[in-house]
Computed example of a mutant assay.
Amino acid sequence: MLLPVAMVYTVVLVIASVVNLNNVPSLGSSFDDKIYHFVAYLVLAFLWTTYFKPSHKRHTNTIVFVSVIAFGVVLELIQHQLNPNRTYDVYDLMANCLGVLFGTLIVHKFNIIKLK
């Protein structure tokens, strides 16, 4: 059941990354966009890491982590090519990476608690 959710979320994230988004609610800060990036990639990492059920094999966790980071980097780099109104922003990329890190750590923490 989690695989379709992760796949649909990934597709929605791709679409949201390349289209013009109008009327996005304001969070009242000067860096709303970075918060959105952080949360979007936290959820993405959470879904995929949970789907692959972090195992005792470190490689599985590392592959998922690196794959989600690479996905964010590629998407950030190509969004301008697909939509001239969108631009590459290193701070967006940093927010993506931090979201992936926190999403992965949350799953890891839940798994440690479940094992106790």
Results as ranks from 00 to 15, higher is better:
V90K: 15
L93F: 02
N96S: 03
A95W: 03
H108S: 12
T104G: 12
C97F: 05
V100T: 07
I106L: 15
I113V: 11
L115V: 03
T104D: 13
V107A: 09
V107G: 04
L98A: 10
K116C: 01
F102Y: 09
N96L: 02
L101I: 06
G103E: 06
Y88I: 02
K114G: 01
F102A: 09
D89L: 06
V90I: 14
I113S: 05
K109G: 08
T87M: 11
V107I: 12
K109R: 14
D92T: 02
D92N: 08
V100S: 06
V100C: 04
L93T: 04
G103Y: 02
V107L: 07
K114Y: 08
L93N: 07
G103D: 07
D92A: 02
Y91E: 05
C97E: 08
G103N: 05
G99T: 05
R86D: 05
N96M: 03
K109L: 14
I113T: 09
Y91T: 04
C97H: 01
V107R: 05
F110I: 12
T104Y: 15
K109V: 07
D89V: 03
C97S: 13
V90A: 14
K114T: 02
L93H: 05
H108Q: 14
K116F: 04
L101Y: 13
K114E: 12
T87Q: 15
G99H: 08
N111M: 14
H108F: 11
L101K: 04
K114W: 07
R86T: 01
L115A: 13
L115S: 12
L93M: 10
G99A: 06
L105V: 03
L115N: 13
M94K: 11
L105W: 12
T87V: 07
L115I: 04
C97T: 11
L115C: 02
F110A: 10
F110R: 11
G103F: 02
L105Q: 11
G99D: 06
M94R: 12
L115P: 00
K109I: 09
T87L: 14
A95T: 02
V90M: 13
K116A: 06
L98C: 06
V90Q: 14
L115W: 04
V100I: 06
I112H: 11
M94I: 08
F110M: 15
D89F: 03
Y88S: 04
C97Q: 05
Y88R: 14
L101G: 02
K109P: 00
F102H: 03
N111K: 15
K116Q: 13
V100G: 03
I113Q: 10
V100Q: 08
I113K: 14
A95K: 08
V100P: 01
A95F: 00
I106C: 07
D92F: 01
R86V: 01
T104K: 11
D92P: 00
K109S: 14
A95M: 03
R86M: 03
K109W: 15
K116P: 00
G103I: 01
F102N: 03
H108L: 13
V90L: 13
I112L: 15
V100H: 07
F102R: 02
I113A: 10
N96P: 00
V107K: 06
K109Q: 13
V107Q: 10
T87G: 07
K114Q: 11
L93E: 10
K116S: 10
L105I: 06
R86G: 02
K116I: 05
I112P: 00
Y88D: 01
Y88N: 06
C97I: 09
I112M: 13
Y91Q: 12
T104Q: 13
N111L: 13
F102D: 04
D89Q: 13
